[in-house]
Design a protein around this nucleic acid. Structure first.
Lengths: 208, 208
DNA sequence: CCTACTTTTGCAACGGTTGCAAGAGCTGGT
DNA sequence: ACCAGCTCTTGCAACCGTTGCAAAAGTAGG
């Protein structure tokens, strides 16, 4: 196998990209620059990462402690499931506000390109996202067991919450008058949290 | 003013694009083809629509009866506000399932390009989206007035619902194992509707 | 050393987009 | 009718990300 050569190429590209992106926005750095800086051919980017975005995503994977660090704050022990769910929403927004590029890659990933390596990377990132979502599932499960939360499918509810947060936060980069700034995002998330906690229906209102 | 010439160019491009996209997916049609078919220069696409995507979006605007038609079904008279909100979620999904391109353009619009025309188009589409959202606001408002829904800011709640639906439906085009097919989308939307109706907290559970 | 296999290369080509000077069309004023 | 000023359009080189592919290079086992 040519694993060593392959690994050398991957590492060179990651190191080069990391160094270049440390000082300039990803849109200002060309694939030619990265390849040249890494001392490899441009085609290798696509071979191993699927696209420029895939290479950027691989840097995210390297730095996935970021997501974990934020979510660790949400799930610290000593807090109730309800508190954890509430904190998860807040920390998810904080993650977006400090790392918008990373956030968007995880919440709304680009296609992985046509080579196996890009697809594997895409799947690894999805698994990392799912890990975080499982923590939300666990919190919901504990809440139900503790009698604090209504009996519900924790997996489904967690996915709904996560997808809803994604949708709300996506208003932050709309390029039109429907765009929301940070303050409005916070207010929206607060409203969402309230609705999700207490529901919309007045007790006794028929469901249909 | 050269409004007539401008209008001729815009109309030629829209007609050409509409005809070409009737038979082939947008990804299979090049900007060169559209411009040639319209008898204009490629640069005019960017002048008037900002991008290829903007031209496609302008076709959406032409066909915005689509969104309206779906949402009309949700808001038909004779149904309660609660029923209308429930139906809006279902019709929003139906809109995505039958017109995925249009849906994505409205829910997650691309940047409008650097010319005024593209930006104006972007704003017109945002206004059209907001019109539909206002119908949701009205339904919530009527629900609150009828004592069926808890007192809440109808604008905020409507935005939360809409953004949440966007986030949930966006799982449909994820290019990774977290992607959801139609059946799972329906189940998710059902769960979301339940959570939004009744909330997650058991009555009496402290909020924090 | 040779063979087979994998990875890398270099680069033309593709498609979307940009910038811009020159050309063309249009309108109002004289 | 002619002219000046203005707006829109043109054509195309250049840019960027991406693709396809034959040839080259690297690696490992026999």
């Amino acid at each position: 196998m040519a694993d060593q050569r392959k690994q050398r190429t991957v590492t060179a590209l990651l190191d080069a990209a990391e160094e270049l992106l440390r000082h300039r926005p990803v849109d200002d750095v060309t694939v030619d620059e990265i390849a040249e800086s890494a001392g490899v051919a441009v085609g290798s980017i696509y071979n191993h990462f699927g696209s420029k975005a895939g290479l950027h995503a691989a840097l995210v994977e390297r730095a996935l402690q970021v997501d974990r660090g934020f979510m660790d704050l949400a799930y610290r022990s000593g807090t109730t499931p309800v508190e954890q769910i509430r904190a998860a929403a807040e920390q998810y927004l904080a993650f977006y506000l400090t790392h918008p590029d990373y956030f968007r890659m995880l919440a709304f990933p680009a296609p992985p390109g046509r080579y196996a390596a890009g697809q594997e990377l895409s799947e690894r990132l999805a698994r990392a996202v799912d890990e975080q979502n499982q923590r939300l599932v666990d919190a919901i499960r504990r809440g139900v067991a503790a009698g604090e939360l209504r009996a519900a499918d924790p997996e489904q509810v967690a996915t709904v919450l996560w997808a809803a947060w994604n949708g709300i936060i996506s208003l932050a980069w709309r390029p039109d008058p429907l765009r929301h700034d940070e303050a409005r995002l916070r207010a929206l998330l607060q409203t969402a949290t309230d609705v999700i906690a207490h529901g919309l229906l007045v007790t006794g209102t028929p469901d249909r």
